[in-house]
């Protein structure tokens, strides 16, 4: 029976660990988000989405088709 109580203690410890871990990581996440917004990480995001296009392959031009197919 002593063994089982020990195990319960252990499980309690595990849960405490998980809860505290969740709390700490949650707070860190929120803080990180606030920090990232403040630093301007989210500004100008659409520019990132456009970086795969250029003057030669601009937005609006289809760049792939079956071989031999007319343009």
């Amino acid at each position: 029976m002593v063994g089982i109580e020990k195990e319960n203690c252990f499980v309690f410890g595990v849960f405490m660990f998980i809860w505290s871990f969740a709390l700490i990581s949650g707070i860190t996440m929120v803080w990180l988000l606030a920090w990232a917004i403040k630093r301007g990480e989210f500004r100008d995001l659409r520019q990132g989405a456009r970086m795969i296009f250029d003057e030669d392959e601009p937005i609006g031009v289809v760049t792939d088709r079956f071989p031999g197919a007319p343009r």
Binding site: F42, L45, G48, A49, E57, V62, T63, D64
Partner: peptide
């Protein structure tokens, strides 16, 4: 997908 159809991704956020 964006590159082939020539359209930026729907939402970068």
């Amino acid at each position: 997908i964006p590159k082939v159809i020539g359209k930026p991704i729907h939402s970068y956020h």
